[in-house]
Simulated scan of single mutants.
Amino acid sequence: MGKKQKNSKDRPRQEFIFQRKNYLFMFLGIGFIALGFILMSGGGSDDPTVFNPDIYNFRRIKLAPTLVLIGLGLEVYAILLNPHKNK
C-alpha cells in the first residue's frame, strides 16, 4: 500500500575519506605550522627610525621556516597516507 521503509542494514555505510591516523598527522602538521608562524612573529620596533637587528636572529630566519616546512610535509604525508594498507 505504501512505500516500504529501508532498514539501516539496507543503507550503504557512510565512511569518512580519512581515518583516525590521517587526522592525527593533519593536526600535528597544523600544530607545527602554527608554532612556526608564532615563532616568526614579532621583532619589530616601536620607533620606525631605529633598526632592530633581532629580526634577523636564528629563531626567525632558520627555526620558524623549518617548522612551517615540516608542518607542510606532515600535511602532505597525512593526505597521502593509506591507513588500510597495514591492517
Rank of each mutant, 00 (worst) to 15 (best):
D47N: 14
F27V: 11
K3M: 09
L63I: 14
D47W: 06
G42K: 08
L69A: 12
K21E: 08
Q19D: 08
T49I: 12
Y23D: 01
L63N: 01
R11S: 11
N57M: 08
I70F: 09
V68P: 07
M1Y: 04
S45M: 10
V50C: 04
L35R: 09
L28R: 07
Q14E: 15
K62D: 15
K6W: 14
V68I: 13
K21G: 00
Y56C: 02
E15Y: 13
Q19S: 09
G29N: 05
F16A: 12
F18P: 00
S41W: 00
L35H: 06
M40K: 12
Q14I: 15
L35E: 09
L63G: 00
I79M: 08
V68R: 01
N7R: 14
A64N: 12
G2A: 15
D46R: 08
Y56K: 00
L63K: 06
K6P: 07
L24H: 10
P53K: 03
I55S: 00
F58K: 10
N82P: 04
K3F: 04
F51T: 15
G43Q: 01
N7A: 07
K85L: 01
G29F: 04
F32R: 07
R13H: 10
I17E: 05
T66Q: 07
E75S: 15
T49V: 05
I79S: 08
L67R: 04
E15V: 14
L74Q: 10
G43P: 07
R20Q: 13
L69Q: 02
K4L: 04
G44F: 03
G71P: 03
K9V: 10
G31D: 06
Q5E: 15
L81W: 03
K85I: 01
D54R: 13
D54G: 13
G42T: 13
Q5I: 14
L28H: 00
L80V: 15
G36E: 09
I30D: 00
K6H: 09
L39S: 01
I55W: 02
N22R: 07
R11F: 09
R60P: 00
K85A: 00
F51H: 14
F27S: 02
G36L: 14
R20K: 15
E75C: 07
R59G: 03
F32I: 03
G44M: 05
L81F: 11
A78K: 12
I38K: 11
P48V: 12
A78L: 11
Q14G: 02
G71K: 05
D10K: 09
Q5Y: 13
Y77E: 06
Y56N: 04
P48Y: 04
V68F: 08
L35I: 11
L39K: 02
I79C: 08
S41M: 05
A64H: 10
V50D: 08
G31T: 15
D54L: 12
L80H: 05
G44T: 13
G42H: 13
R13P: 02
A78R: 06
L80G: 10
K21W: 10
P12K: 11
P65Q: 06
A64E: 12
I17M: 11
F51N: 07
F58R: 07
K87W: 01
F27D: 02
